[in-house]
Write a protein that binds this DNA or RNA. Structure first.
Length: 551
RNA sequence: GCGGGCGUAGCUCAAUGGUAGAGUAUCAGCCUUCCAAGCUGAAUGUUGUGGGUUCGAGUCCCAUCGCCCGCUCCA
C-alpha cells in the first residue's frame, strides 16, 4: 500500500544527508537488503540498544508480584551446529517450494497448491492419465473444495458418487505430468514452472572445504542460541525460575523481496528475551511482558496513535503458541501497521524440541519446593520415602518440569526506523528577514538523541570559543556532545535540529562577563522543540544537562 | 520474479546529437552579539556500468546494475 511516499522520501534523504543511514557498499552500486548506519545513526541505534539493555536486563521493572525480575544476558555465536535449525523447525519451515505461472505471472507455494484429478493415476502415471486433472486451487484443501463447490457437485453427479476426486498438492504431481495441471489463477495449462525452493536461511561453509558436510547457516533469529544455552545459564548463574535470558545480536534472512528502506533487511539486529516460568504462571507473565514492552516504546517517545498493541487472532498463532501480541507501528511507507516486536507465549515447544534432538536433559528441578516437601513429610511424622519413591515423585511436576517460555522479540533496526519516523517534524517559522522557512527537526527522546548537547560560541572572539570548548570537553566526559563555531548562530541551531540534538548551549557576551552583561557568567540553553531559552550559570550547565538527559 | 518510472557535482536540477553548467552544501579567509541563503576565494564529474549507431552521444539503440511505485512473497 502506498502510504505517505513524500514523507518517506524526505526522511530517507535526511538520513542520507546527515549520516544516519547509508545504502551498504554504495560505491559499488549497493546491495539490495543491506544498510549501514552512519555517525549519527550508529549513536541512535546504540542508544536504543543500550536503553533496552538497561531497562530490561540491568534494571528491569518489578514483576507482576512486585518482586525484582531476574534477568541475565548472553551473546551467542551467529553460526551454530546445523542441528539447531532442524530442532527449531527453521530447516524445514523456512524453506518453501514455489511455483510460478508463466502465463499470468502468479506465484504459489507448492504445498498450498491443490491439484484436483479424477483418478489417482493422474499423479503417478503417464502423461495420458494426467488428462484427468480437472481444476486446481490455492489454499487449504477445504477452501479449495468450497471455492469450487459447483464443479465438485457437477463431477460428483456425473461420476455417481461422493468421494471420486483425488486432491493432492502440486508437489505430488509427477514432473512429466506438470504440463497438464491448470493454473489456479488463469486456468491455463502448460505454463507452470517446476517447484523451486526459496530457502530463507543464509547458507555458509565452516572450514575451507565447501562440501556438504561443512554446510552451516547464519542464524535467522537470536532466540535459539538462548535455548541452546539455557542449561549452561541455569548451571552457572544461580538463577531460579522465573527468570529471563536476554540477547542483542545480528540475524539473517534471505527475504524474497527486501523493501521499505531498512524495514525488511536481509541482515538485521534483534533484541530478544526468553522468559522462563512455571506453566501455571505463564499467562500472568505473558500479560506482564506484553504491556511492559509496549510501554517501553511509549516511554521513549513512540507515543502517537501510530503505535499499537495488537493481539494475534487464533488463526495467526503458530500451532505451539498459546497467545501472541504484536507491537506495531504505522510507518509512512504503508497504510497498514507493521510489526516492531512480537510478544509470544511459546509454551515449552522450543525446549521440548531441543531436548528431543540433542538428547540433553533440559528439565528444571525445584530444589526448594522439593526440600519443603520432604521437610513437611518429616514434620507430619510420615515414614521416609524409599530411593525409588523419591525419584518417582521428584521426577515429575511440580518438582521437575520443562518451563514455559514467554518471548518478547524486538527488531532493533525496526525500532530505530520507527523512532526516526516518529521524530521527523517540520514546522514553519519566519527567518531573520521575515520570510517563512521550513524548519526540520528530529524530536528524539533525550535518551535516544545521538548528540545530547551542542556547544556554540556566539561569535569567535573575546574568549567565547575557548570557554565553549572547555564546556564541550567537560560535557564529553558524561555524554556525546558537539562543538561548532562556523557560520551564523541560526544556521548552527538548524544543523543541530536536523541531528535531533535536544539542547544547544550558546556562550555569549554575558557568559564571559562583558561590561554590559545583564546575567554575568550565564550561558543560554536552547530547547530544540520549544525554541525557548533559559540562562544557566556556566559552572552549572553540565549538571543541568545531565539531569535533563538522565545520564 | 513480473510490470511501470527514474539514474548528470555531496544535495536539488539545467544542458536542439556539437566545449558538461547553475543554485545549494562543503572548505579557507573576512565580517558578525541568538534562530539556515553577508563578502572574497577554492575544490567538486569516466553523465550508474558496459556495449552499439554516429565525424561526434548526457542526449538515440541494446544489455546490465541500483533505487522508487504496483503485483507477488513475508516461517
Amino acid at each position: 500500500m502506498p502510504g505517505d511516499v513524500a514523507f518517506m522520501e524526505k526522511l530517507v534523504a535526511l538520513c542520507k544527508r546527515r549520516g544516519f543511514i547509508f545504502p551498504s557498499s554504495e560505491i559499488y552500486g549497493g546491495i539490495n537488503g543491506f544498510w549501514d548506519y552512519g555517525p549519527l545513526g550508529v549513536e541512535l541505534k546504540r542508544n536504543i540498544k543500550n536503553a533496552w539493555w538497561q531497562d530490561m536486563v540491568v534494571n528491569p521493572p518489578n514483576g507482576p508480584d512486585g518482586n525484582e525480575i531476574q534477568m541475565v544476558g548472553l551473546d551467542c555465536s551467529i553460526i551454530m551446529n546445523p542441528k539447531v535449525w532442524v530442532a527449531s523447525g527453521h530447516a524445514t519451515g523456512f524453506s518453501d517450494p514455489m511455483v510460478d505461472c508463466k502465463a499470468c505471472k502468479a506465484r504459489f507455494r507448492a504445498d498450498q497448491f491443490r491439484v484436483v484429478a479424477l483418478t489417482a493415476d493422474a499423479f503417478s502415471d503417464t502423461a495420458a492419465g494426467s488428462q484427468t486433472f480437472v481444476f486446481s486451487g490455492y489454499g487449504a484443501r477445504d477452501e479449495v473444495l468450497e471455492a469450487n463447490r459447483k464443479k465438485v457437485e457437477k463431477i460428483a453427479k456425473a461420476q455417481g458418487g461422493d468421494n471420486v476426486l483425488e486432491i493432492r498438492t502440486f508437489l505430488d504431481v509427477r514432473p512429466s505430468a506438470r504440463a497438464f495441471v491448470p493454473c489456479p489463477e488463469c486456468e491455463q495449462r502448460g505454463h507452470l514452472t517446476d517447484p523451486r525452493s526459496f530457502n530463507l536461511m543464509f547458507k555458509t561453509f565452516v572450514g575451507a572445504m565447501e562440501d556438504a558436510s561443512a554446510e552451516a547457516w547464519l542464524r535467522p533469529e537470536t532466540a535459539q542460541g538462548i535455548f541452546a544455552n539455557y542449561k549452561n545459564v541455569l548451571d552457572t548463574s544461580r538463577v531460579k525460575i522465573p527468570f529471563g535470558i536476554a540477547q542483542i545480536g545480528k540475524a539473517f534472512r534471505n527475504e524474497i523481496n527486501p523493501r521499505n528502506y531498512t524495514f525488511r533487511s536481509r541482515e538485521f539486529e534483534q533484541m530478544e528475551i526468553e522468559y522462563f516460568c512455571r506453566d501455571e504462571d505463564s499467562m500472568k507473565w505473558y500479560e506482564f511482558w506484553r504491556t511492559t514492552r509496549y510501554q517501553w516504546y511509549v516511554g521513549l517517545g513512540l507515543k502517537s496513535e501510530k503505535l499499537r498493541l495488537r493481539d494475534q487472532t487464533k488463526e495467526e498463532l503458530a500451532h505451539y503458541s498459546r497467545a501472541c501480541a504484536d507491537i506495531e507501528y504505522l510507518f509512512p511507507f504503508s497504510d497498514e501497521h507493521q510489526e516492531l516486536e512480537g510478544c509470544a507465549h511459546r509454551g515449552c515447544f522450543d525446549l521440548t524440541q531441543h531436548m528431543q534432538h540433542s538428547g540433553a536433559d533440559l528439565n528444571y528441578f525445584e530444589e526448594e519446593l522439593w526440600a519443603k516437601f520432604l521437610a513437611e513429610r518429616k514434620a507430619r511424622g510420615e515414614p521416609e520415602l524409599t530411593k525409588d519413591q523419591k525419584s518417582e515423585i521428584a521426577g515429575k511436576p511440580p518438582y521437575r518440569y520443562l518451563p514455559t517460555v514467554i518471548e518478547p522479540s524486538a527488531g532493533a533496526d525496526r525500532a530505530t526506523l520507527a523512532f526516526l519516523c516518529e521524530a521527523y517534524t517540520e514546522d514553519q517559522k519566519p527567518d531573520a528577514k521575515g520570510a517563512m522557512q521550513t524548519r526540520v527537526y528530529m524530536r528524539f527522546h533525550p535518551r535516544l538523541a545521538p548528540i545530547k548537547a551542542a556547544f556554540l560560541p556566539l561569535v569567535n572572539k573575546d574568549g567565547m570559543p575557548e570557554l565553549a570548548e572547555k564546556l564541550y570537553r567537560d560535557a564529553k566526559k558524561h555524554f556525546n556532545a558537539f562543538y561548532d563555531d562556523s557560520g551564523a548562530i541560526g544556521r548552527r541551531y538548524y544543523r543541530q535540529d536536523e541531528a535531533g540534538t535536544p539542547y544547544c548551549v550558546t556562550i555569549d557576551g554575558d557568559t564571559i562577563g562583558a561590561t554590559n552583561a545583564q546575567h554575568p557568567g550565564t550561558v543560554t540553553i536552547r530547547d530544540r522543540d520549544t525554541l525557548e531559552q533559559v540562562r544557566v550559570n556556566h559552572t552549572r550547565v553540565i549538571d543541568w544537562l545531565r539531569e535533563k538527559i538522565g545520564v
